[in-house]
Computed example of a mutant assay.
Amino acid sequence: MTFWKSSVLIFAAVFFSTSLLADDNKCSSVEVPIAFDQYGLPTIELIINGKSNFALLDLGSTTGIHLPVSDIASISDVKYTGEIAKSSNISGEVFSNKQFIIPNLAIECMPFEDITGYELTPRATSIGDKPKDVEDKQQIVIGQGFFADKTIVIDYSSEKLTIRNKTGNVAAESRNKFKPYVLSDEGITIELSSPNADYQMILDTGATSSIFSANKVNTSEPLTDCDFNIGPDVKCKLFTSMLEVSGYHFVSNILIYPIDPRFTQDGFLGSDFFNQFIVELDFLNKNIALTPVTSSAM
């Protein structure tokens, strides 16, 4: 089993000058296709100064955008702030990245202003044997900060991402399902419950699979042995208890992994979660609504 935190994303985003955003009130919603790479991660295409680029749609990143230094230099009006941010991946590797701000950009007709970004450092973590045909590449990453004042709907089943300017305008059938989420330094956190305990999980579209932190799993949980290679001296275990989120069943065999102890939440919800739920996020009001793709309400 492999846990990948890098990929490609297909999304049409175009950087514009301020003058081209004069009619920004005319576009309240855009719908863009999501393509999936060979590991099932969501990908979107970015057009920067007329050049096509590919980036990962990664809700596990709290910032707006990560760009290679070469791409930053090609964008007019980009401003470095002088700030340097430190971050780490689940293996505990620490990265330092310079912060910058892009004053104006757009996705199709929808404008985005003052997007905070960081120079890109490859930070993917793989668990197990890396496939021979996978190359390490510097790829653009779009995180949750990109949508700071928007509402988005992530629909893997229809392979589309909807972005709305006006937040809180929820369809009637899902309005009663909107619940608050917690935004921490580690990401968007929602509660996942088993018969034995409640767990605080980070939404992570940049993960191929959900993962529980080994030191956070309740000792009463029944675990199942597995035979994936997840590293030297690490015994493979799967979390197989019945799980519930927002009144719905979530069915998955979730890997138990010794995530770096500085990670404070209980784990990640990856592609297996997003394949079972359409996820609507109101970033301004910090609300979330889930619609099951195949399961029924409890």
Results as ranks from 00 to 15, higher is better:
L243R: 09
Q139D: 06
G60T: 03
A12V: 12
M242A: 15
P103V: 07
E173I: 08
V69D: 13
Y118P: 05
L223G: 11
L238K: 02
T62G: 12
G270M: 00
S74A: 14
I190K: 03
S87Q: 05
H66Q: 10
I10D: 15
D185S: 14
S158D: 13
F283T: 01
S220N: 15
L281Q: 04
P261M: 02
V94R: 08
K86Y: 11
N218W: 02
D233H: 15
I107H: 07
T205G: 08
I140K: 00
G145P: 02
N104A: 11
D155P: 02
K235D: 09
K286S: 13
S210D: 07
E280H: 09
I107W: 02
I142F: 02
D58C: 11
I102Q: 04
S213V: 00
M201C: 07
N218S: 15
I44G: 15
A171N: 12
K179D: 01
S174M: 14
L290P: 05
P258N: 09
S17D: 14
E119Y: 04
T125E: 13
A171T: 01
V69F: 13
D129N: 12
G145D: 00
I288W: 00
L120F: 08
Q265C: 02
S126F: 14
L290M: 05
I48W: 03
G267P: 09
G82Y: 01
N25P: 04
I188Q: 00
E221Q: 13
D23Q: 15
V153Q: 10
I84C: 04
L284R: 13
K5P: 00
F239I: 06
G50S: 04
P222E: 11
V78C: 06
S91L: 08
